[in-house]
Design a protein around this nucleic acid. Structure first.
Lengths: 246, 246
DNA sequence: CGGTCCAGTTGATCCTGATCAAAGCGGCGG
DNA sequence: CCGCCGCTTTGATCAGGATCAACTGGACCG
């Protein structure tokens, strides 16, 4: 989750400053990337792929939000991944999508055709290493998320989610979230509920409660203002320095 | 989680048939592995490392059970990883342990010193690729686990855990779990509770309930017999073929 | 044999978050 | 302007699992 400072000079030819593949790529590698690259856009709510579909590309999120989720037969759903701009989607070496992927807002993907991308990984070990690093980061985030799902109260869950989003939005702008910081909530109440293993009513109530206790305030429905960031972190149940800063 | 058929012939010089590094290693690579390898054993209950410790090795589980877990300040704990024999522990490229690691039964690790192991990865791309594949498997397991934690009832959680353990034990023996199969439960009620985000009382009650409904029976405290495996799977809430078979 | 310890079981009660229901609030098209 | 729709908020009630507490049974030991 730690922010990667993109190497703009060296990555000039890659329009999205792709986290996985640009920072250390030479001219030839960038040319090969350009050759297998194309863009796709999706409207809010549109499915990108269903679990079980064949994946013919891997991709990087240029703008918008995508979610990974699992659904049970009776309709219960759990979000298992949240992809913000610069996040990576797809798994080299896997052909079948393991989860439903949905555009949660208007979404632009920078896609790379899977087969030649896999060849590129084999030829270019540092790309493989970067993918391993990113996958380990995702694994850490997933395990942090497991603690949230398994052991936190509804209020702590909401505070944790707000903290995570604030930190990720800040890291995209290369800053740290501080007092008075504000950010757009890119999720509906229902998506937040699917993220946290709650119902949308409980999400709404807990947000109202945090508002009542002056931990946050809302401008409109979606913009969140955090007057005292440490106060928000205190509500997550984590100790001040550990946990969420992965 | 799919079982890897070890290449015994080529890995003869690696006593543990290490999943990560043996299957495609040549003589020179195996020699380098031997040079940086050593064994460590731990008693049941003994900590292997704490979150925040410096890790000077990566390792493979030879025998016994290890768990990864996170603990909140007030003592609530969530298990985030369960390592059975042949599973891999550690993260090339990371120096600080992200979670507590505990020996949950007598445990034997085959360790590799971290620094030279990382060098070996750089020199030997197929090891890096194998690590990426294993990490993706762990990520899939973590996300399956998130669905369990976030959306399943206590009874479904227990059934899911039993299914997972049955499948992993079976895969170590290169078989598939079937009707009448039985296995050792390697976890106490409390560990099961930490795995599933429940209390140990609830775990005990749900196991009793499954016993009462003839879904399982127990021999002693730890040996579980499953007369009808499909009936157990039906209790997990997953559809028959998807989900758990990752 | 009795005593202690520990993992597990079972019971009674409580509380958090789910469920069911209704109403508020923009935004948008006619 | 109205009516409709999607999203959100709030209220009333319910229930699943947590909590607190007592008890069982086996292993170990003097």
């Amino acid at each position: 989750m730690k922010n990667l400072v993109f190497d703009y000079k060296r990555c000039g030819s890659c329009p999205i400053r792709h986290r996985a593949v640009c920072a250390r790529c030479d001219k030839g590698e960038l040319r090969r990337l350009e050759e297998i690259k194309y863009y796709r856009s999706y409207e809010a709510g549109q499915p990108v792929m269903w679990a079980g579909d064949e994946m013919d590309f891997v991709a990087s999120v240029v703008s918008g939000i995508a979610t990974l989720s699992q659904t049970m037969e009776d309709g219960r759903t759990q979000m298992v991944g949240l992809l913000l701009p610069s996040d990576f989607l797809g798994r080299p070496g896997r052909i079948i999508a393991p989860y439903d992927v949905t555009a949660n807002s208007d979404l632009m993907l920078c896609c790379f055709r899977r087969k030649p991308f896999e060849r590129l990984i084999v030829d270019t070990p540092h790309i493989g290493q970067r993918l391993l690093e990113m996958t380990l980061n995702e694994l850490d985030a997933a395990r942090e998320w497991m603690l949230i799902l398994g052991r936190k109260t509804a209020r702590e869950k909401i505070a944790s989610l707000l903290t995570i989003i604030a930190q990720r939005e800040a890291s995209l702008k290369q800053t740290a979230p501080g007092d008075g910081s504000s950010f757009e909530l890119p999720l509906t109440r229902e998506s937040m509920a699917d993220y946290l293993g709650l119902t949308l009513e409980t999400v709404s109530r807990q947000i109202s409660s945090l508002k009542r206790d002056q931990i946050i305030s809302l401008e409109g429905k979606r913009k969140v203002v955090v007057p005292d960031f440490d106060a928000l972190i205190a509500e997550t149940g984590d100790d001040a320095d550990g946990g969420m800063l992965v």
